[in-house]
Structure formats: C-alpha cells, structure tokens
C-alpha cells in the first residue's frame, strides 16, 4: 500500500469525510426545526428557507466578495421567512403544516426568481479548517478539510441542548410547547414566543442553505438542494426533539450518503441506486426499531400538531 492506495480503508474514510461534508445543512436545518417544534409549532417550509438561504447567501457573497456577509444575509432572510410563518400561524385556526408547505413553495419560487442572474458568477467560498495537517495522505487531508460552519453547528447543538435543559429561555420555550394553557396561566404569551422561536429556526435553516451554496458543493443553481430541508425536518422527529441527537442523525445521514460513491470508487458498482437510498432505509429501520405503540411519540412537545 503506497501513499495514495488505501484499498478498502477508503470506505470508512469516505464515510467520515462525507459525514462531515454533507451533514452540515441537515444539522442546521434540524436544529432550527427543533427550536420551532419545541415551542409547539411545526414549520415544514424550511426546505424553501434553505433554498432561499442558499441563493441569498451566494448572491450577497458574489456582490460583496465576502462569504461571511452571505452567511449573515442567509440567516437574515431565513429569519424573515420564519417570522412570516410565526406571525401567520399566530392567527387562530391557521394550520401550521399547510402554511409551511406554502412557504416552501414561495421560498423556492423566490429563490429561483431572483437567483437567475447568480447561476453563472462564481462567489468566494467560505474558509475551511485544515484538520488533516498531521497526515501525509491527501485523502485524510481532504476528509478532514472542515468548514467552519461544521464546528459552529456542533457548538449550536450543545448550546441548544444546554438551553433547553438549564436556562430560563429554554424553559419558556418548553412550557409554551407543552401546554398553551399552562403557559397562559404563567402569564406567558405563547404566540409571541412561538413566533420568535420560528424566526430563530428560520435563521438556522438559512445558514444551512448558505453552507450548500458557499462551501459544499459551493455553487448556486436551481438543483442545489435535493430535499435536504424537508429531510432535516423529518430527522427532528427521528432525533426525538433532542439537539444532540440531531447532530448524530445528521452525521449518520451524511455518512450513509457517502457510501454509494465510495463503494463505486473501490469497484463495487452494482445497485448504486439502492446504495444511494441507504440513508433513507437506515433511518426508517432505526425509526421502526425504536418506536413502540404504547409511547407513540416520546419526547414530543404536547402542542405539536403532528403528534397530537
């Protein structure tokens, strides 16, 4: 085995690299959704927010030459979408799932609409941390070429976990999410808190989109998202509304996604569609294995419409 021949070791390395590269958008969107759902609302529209975040981040980075300005713009745009969802759903009898689906359409539509002039230009990429400096192997160096947003995402997951567990804000969000009546009895304004939580959740999703367009794959076009936003919302249920579990779910999902190309590159070419479907099969399998009819939705916020 020489410097570039890894043989079958290439597979775990590719999965590690893939997990790091591909998981970040899933992580950010699912963290945003955890925040929203813990407050008792579901925002299915984060796919649209993600796509709009990808477009606006890329556009601003193109215009200003500053990728971080793009990330900020994506977060801002995302929080606007979240705010609209939050405000609209604060009206009585408005269905949050349906509004989410409409906003998915609107976000995607607006992104495509305003994104046309930005398909061609090349925007500056976000910087990466070279965590593989200790190795001589180019594969290891590449796998550990980590975007700054990935550790930021891990930190955010830890912070959110700590926030829900140990802070006043976290408690407020949880109370509002578990029982509107209890929250009112405590003198809280549930709609207000939910709107803020949804807006903050939107900002997370916007950043997830900026990662797609500004780092990996690092370009804006209309096919940039293959449903990452929608899948990430599903991963929240899978992660049982726990931010740390979201990190695990995102890594698992990203790593499983790298399996298909990696297997082909070491000469296992058959049935790649089925290997590409591995992340979905695995998630479904784990979901079935860990569910049980008695406690249908352990950990679910009480006011969440899909688990009521």
């Amino acid at each position: 085995m020489n410097g570039t021949e890894l043989g079958l070791w290439a597979i775990p390395l590719a999965i590690l690299g893939g997990a790091i590269r591909v998981s970040t958008p899933f992580l950010f969107v699912s963290l945003g959704e955890v925040l929203t759902e813990r407050s008792g609302r579901i925002n299915l529209g984060l796919e649209g927010t993600l796509v709009f975040g990808a477009m606006s981040g890329y556009a601003i980075a193109c215009v200003t030459g500053l990728p971080w300005a793009g990330v900020l713009a994506a977060a801002g745009a995302g929080s606007l979408f979240g705010l609209v969802h939050g405000l609209v759903c604060s009206l009585p009898r408005v269905n949050d799932i349906a509004v989410g689906i409409s906003l998915m359409l609107l976000g995607t539509g607006l992104a495509y609409f305003f994104g046309k002039p930005f398909i061609q230009p090349v925007a500056p990429d976000l910087p990466a941390l070279e965590l593989g400096w200790w190795s001589d192997l180019p594969q290891v160096q590449a796998a550990l070429r980590v975007n700054v947003l990935f550790p930021v995402g891990i930190l955010a997951a830890l912070l959110l976990w700590w926030m829900f567990r140990a802070t006043r804000i976290g408690l407020l969000v949880r109370v509002v999410g578990d029982s509107t009546d209890a929250a009112r009895a405590m003198g809280l304004r549930p709609a207000f808190i939910r709107t803020l939580a949804t807006a903050a959740g939107g900002a997370f999703a916007g950043v997830g989109g900026a990662y797609l367009s500004l780092f990996y794959p690092g370009s804006w076009n209309e096919g940039i998202s293959s449903g990452q936003g929608l899948m990430a919302v599903a991963l929240v249920i899978f992660a049982r509304w726990n931010p740390i579990a979201c990190l695990g779910a995102a890594l698992l999902f990203g790593g499983a996604g790298a399996l298909g190309p990696a297997l082909q590159s070491v000469g296992i070419p058959d049935g790649y569609y089925l290997f590409y479907a591995m992340p979905y099969v695995m998630t479904l399998g784990v979901l079935i294995a860990t569910s049980s009819p008695g406690r249908a939705m352990a950990g679910a916020p009480g006011e969440l419409s899909i688990s009521k």
């Binding site: 929608l230 599903a234 249920i237 049935g271 569609y273 479907a277 479904l284 979901l287 009819p293 688990s307």
Partner: peptide, 30 residues
Amino acid sequence: LRHYRGVNETIASLLMAYIAIALMNHLVEG
C-alpha cells in the same frame, strides 16, 4: 406502521417515497 408500531407517518411516508423512487430507478435501469 403508525397504528401498530407508533412510527410517525409523516417521516415514514417521506422516507418511503425516496426509497420507492430509488427502487423504481434501480428496476427500470436493471
């Protein structure tokens, strides 16, 4: 799955849609 196993139907149906499409592609090309 939802009724007898408590699996959330929203996520299960979404996952199964992706799986169905992969299955279709695999069979149609194979």
